[in-house]
Nucleic acid binder design. Structure first.
Length: 601
RNA sequence: GCCCUGGUAGUGUAGUGGCCUAUCAUGAAGCCCUGUCGAGGCUUCGACUCGGAUUCGAAUUCCGGCCAGGGCGCCA
């Protein structure tokens, strides 16, 4: 390799060295004589100089000058030169290589670049091209420091994680990508089998069943950086293919799994931030998270808990509350303390918040402002002094605090309350982007009931070990979530290792004996051969990295993501395939554009 | 499937019925310039997502399509 240094390497100590630099022409500045070129690569930027009055012996001034004329932006070039100190007063303190420059002795274009479709630099968000352009030319987008650093950060994270697993006796095992489609869960991506026409593999939504089989197979400490696939609509934190750090262990309970993950993250923290991460993470019950924060993935970087006041105000003759209560609804509210509101919420702002609440599924919002003497609002007259005093105590009200009260069906109040809490935190800038608050959400239910169909479903998945009798009214499951700054990073659980219990759970979920046998027969059979007690967790790597880097979208930490419609703008997938290929698979497309209506009729 | 927001030179934008042969920046091409650093100066080039409607007149208003993003549904 001819390259002696990257563009981020050179320092004062290298002055006088003969070097060969290779990289991309980022910016060039021709002063009509002396000429500067910022040579860039993934490690930094180094200034190259050509000075017609200071050409080292053995170099041809005209030849260099001629080659430099063909240095178009983003061309890959190679330059030999001598490292020298910059002229006094022209050092660039913003650049780590800014004390030195390379005086060119020989220049060569390795590969000329066309004019790039957008300017590559470390520009602010506001001048970044739209995402469509960035994804279409992703390789150029990755030349931007921000992108390449995100990918390098992701690598360091995974590398540290692997180091931890290695020293903790974990074994990485690859599980199949061509697997069986199961009716439960997300929609599968399907792969046709040529050898068995009319049959299909499914790409895995997670290695769940295989890792359980590995436990039965005695591989008692497994992990995998596993690609997973779900054919569902994208969101800013959801892609059709994504990466999970998948973990499973035998002869453990929930605490062992949580300890392992805390150890893992603390180790990674030490490696990438050189900081000690405080463990154990706080545990919050699912019920408390919902009632206090209105979400199962609370952002704990700020307070603003919801207070439940149904009992206190239930007798007040205030029509709106009475109407809600008569339908079994609840009343809850926030106290926006004067020290965090700082006069930023006036009448107009309150009206805007009321509109916001209406848009989010409640009829409206009642508010009160705390004064020296009590609570001030146009509805205060409906509440007795005793009720007001209890309210002040319950919600910890001090002078100038602002109270927002939400009334409605419990589910709506909690959900809207959670949404309002996030909005208030955003509006009042309560969120410190440099703080990371992990927490475990524990004591989860075993089942949840779909309010629309009334159908019972698994809260996490059907393989969770029950912690109470299954027919108990609020049956509990040994599952838990890891949350960070309002994002769910992953779910773990103790799994069922007894085939009879597993069957019972399937029955509770309304799965027939036949379906059980055809879809999960192999699992039930395997559990019957001395399956050890086991459990594990899967952490969403894309989400975790994007939260750690404060990115709005996981696309910013994935090298080649799909767009919102699941297309790759880079290679144009998904695409039609040749008819011969379909014939070989004995597949006929009935997509609207592929069929001739006349043929059908 | 639904809702919201947006679509103007290569890129990022201004433009709320006539002041638009459309603003500014950046870029590209050319010229000038010997210490800049996202160099500077001058010249040139380059755009209203598509279709329909309203109107004397539409980038601008209305309807529909297409495209992109955010969200709901969906994501055991």
């Amino acid at each position: 390799m001819r390259r002696t240094h990257t563009c981020g390497d050179l320092r004062s100590k290298d002055i006088g060295k003969k070097v060969c630099m290779q990289g991309w022409v980022r910016f060039s500045r021709d002063h009509g004589g002396v000429e500067f070129i910022d040579l860039a690569d993934s490690y930094g930027i180094t200034q190259l100089v050509f000075d017609p009055e200071d050409v080292p012996n053995g170099s041809d001034r005209n030849e260099i000058s001629e080659v430099l004329r063909s240095f178009t932006r983003e061309s890959a070039v190679s330059v030999d030169g001598i490292v020298r100190k910059r002229v006094k007063g022209t050092e660039d303190p913003k650049n780590k290589t800014g004390d030195v420059e390379v005086l060119i002795t020989k220049a060569e274009v390795l590969n000329r670049s066309k004019t790039p479709p957008f300017e590559i630099g470390d520009q602010k968000e506001s001048v970044l091209p739209g995402e469509e352009t960035r994804l279409r030319y992703r390789y150029l987008d990755i030349r931007r420091t921000e992108m390449s650093e995100a990918l390098r950060f992701r690598h360091r994270f995974l590398s540290a994680a692997r180091e931890y697993f290695d020293k903790s006796g974990f074994v990485e095992v690859e599980t199949p990508m061509l697997t069986k489609s199961t009716p439960e869960g997300a929609r599968d991506f399907i792969v046709p089998s040529r050898v068995h026409p009319g049959t299909f593999y499914a790409l895995p939504q997670s290695p769940q069943l295989f890792k359980q089989l590995l436990m039965i197979g005695s591989m008692d400490r497994y992990y995998q950086v596993a690609r997973c696939f779900r054919d569902e609509d994208s969101r800013s934190d959801r892609q059709p293919e994504f990466t999970q750090l998948d973990i499973e262990m035998s002869f453990v309970d929930m605490k062992d799994i949580q300890d392992t993950i805390e150890g893992l993250i603390a180790h990674v923290w030490k490696k990438i931030y050189s900081k000690k991460l405080k463990t154990p993470f706080p545990r919050i019950s699912f019920g408390e998270a919902m009632s206090k924060y209105g979400t199962d993935k609370p952002d704990l970087r700020y307070g603003l808990p919801m207070h439940h006041i149904t009992e206190i105000v239930k007798d007040a003759p205030y029509d709106i509350f009475q109407k809600v209560l008569s339908k079994g609804g609840v009343i809850a509210g926030f106290n926006v303390k004067s020290e965090i509101a700082k006069d930023r919420i006036g009448r107009n702002e309150i009206d805007r918040l009321i509109e916001f609440v209406k848009k989010n599924g409640l009829g409206g919002m009642t508010w009160m402002r705390a004064t020296k003497d009590g609570l001030d609002s146009n509805i205060v007259k409906y509440f007795t002094p005793d009720v007001l005093s209890k309210l002040r105590k319950k919600m910890d009200v001090k002078e100038n605090d602002l109270l927002f009260l939400l009334a409605g069906p419990e589910k709506n109040v909690l959900e809207t309350g959670g949404t309002l809490r996030r909005k208030l935190a955003d509006d009042l800038e309560l969120i410190d982007p440099d703080v990371f608050k992990f927490a475990w959400i524990v004591d989860c239910p075993m089942f949840e009931t779909d309010p629309a169909s009334g159908k019972k479903g698994a809260f996490h998945h059907p393989f969770v070990f029950p912690t109470t009798p299954l027919d108990a009214e609020n049956a509990g499951g040994a599952s838990f979530d890891l949350v960070l700054n309002g994002s769910e990073l992953g779910s773990g659980s103790q799994r069922i290792h007894d085939p009879e219990i597993q069957k019972e759970v399937f029955r509770m979920l309304g799965i027939s004996e036949e379906k059980m046998e055809s879809d999960f027969g192999f699992l039930l059979e395997a559990l019957g051969y001395g399956a050890p007690p086991h459990g594990g967790i899967a952490l969403g790597i894309d989400r975790m990295i994007s939260v750690l880097l404060n990115k709005e979208s996981i696309r910013d930490v994935i090298a080649f993501p799909k767009n919102k419609k699941g297309q790759s703008l880079l290679d144009g997938s998904p695409q039609k395939v040749d008819d011969e290929k379909l014939e070989e698979l004995q597949i006929l497309s009935i997509a609207i554009d592929d069929i001739n209506i006349g043929d059908i009729e």
